[in-house]
Design a protein around this nucleic acid. Structure first.
Lengths: 338, 338
DNA sequence: TTGAAAGCGGTACCAA
DNA sequence: TTGGTACCGCTTTCAA
């Protein structure tokens, strides 16, 4: 790092102590206006920026929050979450340290440990698996805010999405279109986001006296391929259901493609729904009916919770929030073919 | 922040000075093995993590790099860049502070200033416009590595992509398929990435004795719509070119959709190419022929350059690198219809 | 109105 | 082998 000017540098030029300079720059009441003026001018000329690390060290504060995700983009929607975290943090003068774990629990924990060492005041984590033991070990006394739904909602700080309700909404929409033979397609590895969808789906189907079919195939790391595989399996065992709900938009893309390659039209022969409302679903040729998860809201809430925890004081915080998905109807679902 | 244990805490328990503890933990040669053992055990029990801010303060070092982008995801490919920056940085024990400017030059500069204050040793910036004056003002003596191609390649540190060559590759591919009436579709606001594509395209066309048609319409903030608009304009003035090269994949999506809505088939009637190789181009129904920009490589190079600049020493660094795009052929381009 | 001293959590240097 | 002292840049307290 190049040598940047410090309070002392300014003091030497102004013929003052670094203490007086510090006070002048922070507009303390016990410094004369003339001195303040003079000091500020010198600081400007030198391009002085306070060393926040030193300030935070003395004040035992932090001006950064951490965030660890399995990956940015790349079949996740954490990029949307981050954009909001960044905006909310910047508005309160906080920087955000971000780490991409590349879906590796070891790297995930390392990111946490490095951030704790670098004095972030709180960490927002979207864990890559449901095993969060190493994360908690790495964070020790630094508060961790879990997002993404893979963790137990009983964690102290958790901003989750109600995937059970996703199941309800999906069944509501498809049954409303007259579908009775509906299958849910999911993939491994098993985690809360998947099992919640399965539970919500099964319950909603049974409430309507319909038989829930759930098919797991493939792996989350290549959800698109999992969708292709699922269709193969379904078609081998007779005529497919009239409607398919996929655990993610990526999977839905693979499913729709596989169906079309087999000569089945969407939604003519089979209606297809996804989950997450990622960008490409809006692409006119795709027009995917899906469930929107409010990622931007979650990001904003996470940043605000993190900063509230850091600034502390008596301010009350809402440590757990459940966000609700909402239905987005596009062209990939339609009335059941009689 | 909760009170975390410090060297002094450990020293009190071990009956040693904080200095001895510091040495023991860093395995200094002048501490007895027994003491080291004892100290390390206490540190483990307490979950001690060194305060890197304090260490860096004394050592006048930094263990973080900054990165500022117009947005994560959201029609950019900076998520791919970030994933690599994060991995490369973590491998060298560096944290990454990331800021999303939301395409606002003021917020962009604020992120830089906050990161400089928080002692990042270098900043990687993908500027949202070609006006980088505020960025440089905010960063003062902290080195800035420019990526993304909107800035002057003569900047001290710049990792760019040769968009001129994109033009050459696009023309080569389309002309090779027999196309002679080829148009380049771009959008505002004007910046180097756009003008380089235009220049490369025009040159390559002229070298083949072909007349370059370039049409600018709409705005980068909604590239998809810009594509739709461009097609409208083209079709108003007679039969469209047989091939269209779009300044970005997003624009190409809009273009293909608009063409199909007008009853023209892709690539049957019109071949369409994009630029950037974003994920959705791989979606089978899209199958976009495009130009791949090596974002992952740029990310890795940027992180390595940043850290080399920080660690300094005599190590030589390559301050400017130009990366080459490569052609990705999928289904949206085909032989010219005779 | 100004500044000297102390302390935040570390590390380097040198004396014990 | 150990620890005292000083210092990184900043802020707070208190005395001048």
């Amino acid at each position: 790092m190049a040598d940047r000017p410090t309070l002392k540098t300014i003091g030497q030029i102004a013929g003052l102590s670094h203490v007086a300079v510090s006070k002048a720059l922070r507009d303390a009441p016990d410094i004369s206006a003339a001195t303040k003026e003079r000091v500020r001018k010198i600081a400007d000329e030198l391009g002085y920026t306070p060393n926040l690390a030193a300030r935070n060290l003395y004040l035992r504060r932090s001006s950064a929050i951490g965030m660890v995700v399995p990956a940015m983009g790349d079949s996740t929607a954490y990029d949307l979450v981050f954009n909001e975290v960044s905006a909310a943090a910047a508005a309160m003068d906080f920087c955000v340290m971000l780490g991409s774990s590349h879906r590796d629990t070891q790297l995930e924990a390392r990111h946490c440990a490095m951030m704790v060492g670098n004095q972030v005041g709180a960490i927002i984590v979207a864990p890559c698996t449901s095993d969060i033991s190493r994360i908690k070990a790495a964070c020790a006394s630094t508060p961790v805010i879990f997002i993404g739904g893979k963790t137990d909602p009983e964690e102290q700080y958790a901003l989750l999405c109600d995937y059970r309700r996703s199941g309800v909404l999906a069944v509501e929409h498809l049954a409303g279109l007259g579908h009775r033979d509906i299958a849910l397609l999911t993939y491994g590895p098993s985690n809360r986001t998947v099992s919640q969808k399965e539970e919500g789906f099964a319950e909603a189907m049974e409430r309507r006296q319909l038989t829930p079919r759930i098919l797991r195939s493939g792996d989350a790391a290549d959800a698109l391929q999992a969708g292709v595989d699922a269709v193969e399996t379904l078609l081998e065992s007779g005529p497919p259901p009239t409607a398919l709900w996929c655990a993610s938009d990526y999977m839905a893309i693979g499913v729709m493609d596989a169906l079309r390659r087999r000569g089945l039209s969407v939604p003519g022969d089979v209606s297809v729904m996804g989950h997450d409302d990622l960008f490409f679903g809006r692409y006119p040729d795709v027009g995917l009916t899906t469930l929107h998860t409010p990622m931007a809201e979650i990001g904003r809430a996470a940043a605000e919770l993190a900063i509230a925890l850091i600034e502390g004081g008596g301010r009350e915080v809402c440590p757990r929030q459940i966000f609700r998905p909402s239905l987005v109807v596009r062209g990939s679902t339609g009335p059941v073919r009689l």
